[in-house]
């Protein structure tokens, strides 16, 4: 009886959450269903009608076959990892160090520096392409992976510093004071206190930096070039569709293929989103 009342009380929460999730899922579901339908069907009837008559519908794996069996897909996956993984690690490392200094060290010009960093989030990266490429040409970095790592790091840093600075800044002062009394150096405090306590925000920052770099097309095209040898997944997939948009239906399957990895990253970092990390540390 009491359990029922409890359930009834919680019903609105379930209702809101599930409704929102259903609304969010519907467009993607449409894409998923469409990715298993032949092109002529996409134009002839709505995707939901296929769900209504699952046996009359001409389901097909042809879209996926065309995407996955395309020449150079393996190489493209590999290239995407070569670009994305180091970039994410470098960005987070540099951003965490800077955010720590901005949050917990006193020095002149700190607020101005912080303001500049946040202001830089708004810089459209398109405006940086020519000067940066010119620099890369002089340094022989254009067409190389390190060049792309550095560029993505530069573009991702402001937002990452901002996110981390906010979280680091919210840590309680007593934490540091007791650590310093115990004789810890600032760097030890950073490694032993700040990083472990910031795992949830580091995880979310990592997810976003990872997926933005993973989904990038423009930066790769400009600094690496569109050659098959270095092209990441996004470049390969955009080459699927003819220049007049022929075969756009292949994008349905391509979208899911390129989405798999960011979703795996999201799932695997989920376990760091847990309550109580901070609470535990405070007690100890």
């Amino acid at each position: 009886m009491r359990r029922w009342r409890q359930l009834l009380k919680r019903l609105p929460v379930h209702l809101v959450v599930i409704t929102l999730a259903a609304i969010w899922l519907t467009p993607s579901l449409g894409l998923l269903v469409s990715s298993f339908r032949p092109r002529q069907d996409l134009l002839a009837s709505g995707w939901w009608t296929a769900l209504g008559r699952p046996f009359a519908t001409q389901w097909t794996l042809a879209n996926y076959r065309q995407v996955l069996l395309r020449e150079g897909m393996g190489r493209a996956f590999l290239n995407s990892f070569i670009i994305t993984v180091p970039t994410t690690l470098i960005t987070l490392g540099i951003a965490a160090l800077a955010a720590y200094a901005l949050a917990w060290m006193n020095f002149r010009g700190r607020q101005l520096l912080l303001m500049t960093v946040i202001g830089l989030i708004v810089i459209p990266l398109q405006m940086t392409l020519i000067p940066v490429l010119r620099m890369f040409n002089a340094l022989k970095l254009s067409g190389t992976f390190p060049g792309v790592w550095l560029a993505h790091t530069g573009y991702g840093l402001p937002l990452m510093i901002y996110l981390l600075r906010n979280f680091f800044g919210a840590l309680p002062r007593e934490l540091f004071e007791s650590a310093f009394i115990d004789g810890a150096s600032p760097f030890t405090a950073f490694l032993r206190l700040v990083l472990p306590l910031s795992v949830p925000v580091l995880a979310s920052a990592a997810i976003f930096q990872f997926l933005w770099v993973w989904n990038d097309l423009l930066v790769s095209l400009v600094y690496l070039g569109g050659f098959a040898r270095v092209a990441p997944l996004t470049v390969q997939l955009s080459n699927l569709v003819g220049s007049r948009g022929q075969d756009w239906h292949l994008l349905t399957a391509a979208a899911f293929v390129s989405m798999i990895v960011p979703m795996i990253v999201f799932f695997s970092l989920q376990r760091y989103f847990v309550r109580g990390i901070l609470a535990g540390a405070l007690k100890g």
Binding site: P27, S28, S34, L251
Partner: peptide
């Protein structure tokens, strides 16, 4: 976790694919 993944999903989609998705809408 399930609902979070559903809400997060669109972030993982490139904007070109998002264009295709909303075409169906």
């Amino acid at each position: 976790t399930v609902i979070k993944s559903v809400i997060f999903l669109p972030m993982a989609i490139s904007y070109v694919a998002a264009g295709v998705i909303w075409r169906f809408v």
